[in-house]
Design a protein around this nucleic acid. Structure first.
Ligand SMILES: [Zn+2]
Ligand SMILES: [Zn+2]
Ligand SMILES: [Zn+2]
Ligand SMILES: [Zn+2]
Lengths: 157, 157
DNA sequence: ATGCGTATGATATAATATAGAAAGCGTCAT
DNA sequence: ATGACGCTTTCTATATTATATCATACGCAT
């Protein structure tokens, strides 16, 4: 299961950048493609290694600049806990996201949970704090990896 | 304002470790002291530089091991966004904490907000995810640094 | 043609973090 | 007491992650 049509996602990214007045250049597109193809988060240097096979001039600043661009354009997220990068899972404007990191299988799930973001906004406001960016990452075990006793399958309702 | 009695905090830390069956050795105590004295978060290498003045043998593993110990014993927190460390602000058992990072003045405030932790627990449970550790860090402006229009002083009630 | 903004290339280095082997040092059972 | 054990520290080396800086190229507007 290579994921739902990477070409389509790249094209959507292209349109998003055009809309934003930014350029999804070939280099950036290649890096995004690498991120999209991976099931697990990739570090900057893992991406760099892969990039080098098609672009011999690639060095650390190459990949970090491309990633910065992709992050600013909400095409990629950085997972701080892992120093690694994953594709954005949503088409959205990204008010806020949260990440669930399974330390068994390594997968990272992106959420946009309003209960969480509302609670964060309230907690910040109550202290006069003006948030500009929220970083919310939970380490744990995903539904697949958790022992059944510990974590029943997703609750309904 | 050097903070409320560092000696007392060190003694409290000592008691906590004894209770936990761990040892707050001289080295660890010195590192904790350094962390406690700072108003701003300190990086591992900033701490190392300071430590070197009294312990010539100190090298990176020295400080990282001491920090690992202090973190496991809930005496220090690591702020992932900053790769830096702050003293734990609470005596508690630390179910969960959140951090507000002011990017103007650099201060980091520790919260234990149940609205946030409940929302996180609910969001995780709804997806069958079993969290073992939550990392919640908000970048923004603290009450002191925020322009008055943008962020009114802390709400009452 | 000149200047300007943006993107990329290229070199070097900074900053952060860990691996692994060995030595010191209590303590405790034999 | 002594030797085995566990924990802490020392020491050396290296791995990993990230940025600074300057140069080059290209498209486009003056
Ligand atoms: Zn996203
Ligand atoms: Zn899993
Ligand atoms: Zn704390
Ligand atoms: Zn501030």
């Amino acid at each position: 299961m290579p994921g739902p049509d990477i070409a389509a996602q790249l094209d959507a990214a292209e349109r998003l950048c055009t809309k934003n007045g930014t350029q999804l250049t070939t280099l950036r597109r290649v890096v995004l493609d690498l991120v999209l193809r991976s099931t697990a988060p990739l570090t900057a240097y893992q991406l760099l290694d892969q990039l080098k096979s098609t672009r011999k001039s690639a060095v650390p600043p190459t990949i970090y600049r491309a990633l910065d661009f992709l992050i600013e354009n909400h095409l990629v997220h950085r997972i701080e806990r892992l120093n690694a990068f994953i594709p954005c899972d949503a088409d959205h404007e990204h008010a806020d996201a949260q990440f669930l990191i399974c330390h068994q299988c390594g997968t990272v799930t992106e959420l946009e949970d309003h209960g969480v973001s509302d609670a964060l906004a309230a907690a910040a406001a109550a202290r006069g704090f003006t948030p500009s960016r929220a970083m919310v990452e939970l380490d744990g075990l995903c539904a697949t990896c958790a022992p059944p006793d510990t974590a029943p399958p997703p609750a309904h309702r």
